[in-house]
């Protein structure tokens, strides 16, 4: 099969490449006495792949859930509404007894997509699952289920797509295929914001990294910038450099 980049479909959103499509300003979230997010700001551009990384409890999931509109921030603003952002939860949110096509059609209808059938056909093409459209989702591999999961997040043609640890639980081959699919989306102009525990994945696929630790933004830049920010780390792999980066900042 050709790579997803080779099959890049037409742009899903109307945003021009490089244009800022989402901007978060001074987001704060508190759970009881614990401050989960402290004054976090960032922006993402059209077609950009923004990786949100950080140790456990850093606030990655809280930030994504605020961006997705599932939680409200205590303070701060977002430039996009919930309806303009596609969200893909970590675990496939699909009906396993329904077929791929039925899942897509149901959510397309609930999303009030204008032309349900052509959108479903487009998503089937994009996910490379057209030939398995009639298969029940429960019979698909984890990787293919995640593709359908992502396709549902794309039904409303959002300018921004949020992926919560999209490759979690997938084997290396499935992960590779999944990222080909995500890269194709990015190539098509969709801004993809994803969280991950796989640091190499963030380095490999992220155009930019947003590093959170203890609810604070501690880094915002490219993987090269992060490497550069750690003295004498050129000989280290990226994960080692990342760990040193956090340690030097007291995390």
């Amino acid at each position: 099969m050709a790579s997803a980049r080779d099959q890049a479909p037409g742009a899903l959103s109307a945003a021009a490449e490089g244009e800022v499509v989402i901007e978060a300003r001074s987001l704060r979230k508190r759970f009881g006495n614990r401050e989960a997010l402290r004054d976090v700001s960032f922006e993402a551009r059209a077609g950009e792949l923004l990786a949100i990384i950080g140790p456990n409890g850093a606030g990655k999931t809280t930030l994504l859930s605020i961006l997705a509109g599932i939680r409200s921030p205590d303070e701060g603003t977002l430039s996009r509404t919930r309806e303009e952002i596609g969200w893909v939860p970590q675990q496939a949110a699909l009906y396993r007894k329904l077929t791929v096509e039925e899942n897509l059609r149901l959510f397309a209808r609930l999303e009030a997509v204008a032309d349900v059938e052509s959108t479903v056909a487009e998503m089937l093409e994009q996910t490379g699952l057209a030939d398995r459209r009639g298969d029940q989702v429960g019979t698909l591999s984890g990787g293919n289920q995640q593709r359908v999961n992502i396709a549902i997040g794309l039904l409303a043609r959002p300018a921004v797509l949020l992926l919560d640890e999209p490759s979690s639980g997938l084997d290396p081959r499935q992960r590779e295929r999944l990222w080909q699919f995500v890269l194709a989306l990015s190539d098509a102009g969709t801004s993809v914001i994803f969280s991950t525990h796989y640091i190499q994945e963030a380095e490999r696929y992220g155009d930019r990294l947003l590093v959170l630790a203890d609810g604070e933004r501690v880094f915002d830049g490219t993987p090269s910038d992060l490497h550069a920010a750690v003295p004498d780390s050129r000989s280290d792999d990226f994960e080692s450099a990342f760990v040193r980066f956090l340690r030097e900042r007291g995390h």
């Binding site: 997705a68 509109g69 599932i70 919930r82 309806e83 969200w87 939860p89 675990q91 496939a92 949110a93 699909l94 009906y95 396993r96 959510f107 609930l110 999303e111 549902i152």
Partner: peptide, 13 residues
């Protein structure tokens, strides 16, 4: 169980 609720409740239904 199917994790569908958060997706549905996020503005769809």
């Amino acid at each position: 169980e199917e994790n569908a609720f958060p997706r549905l409740a996020r503005g769809l239904v």
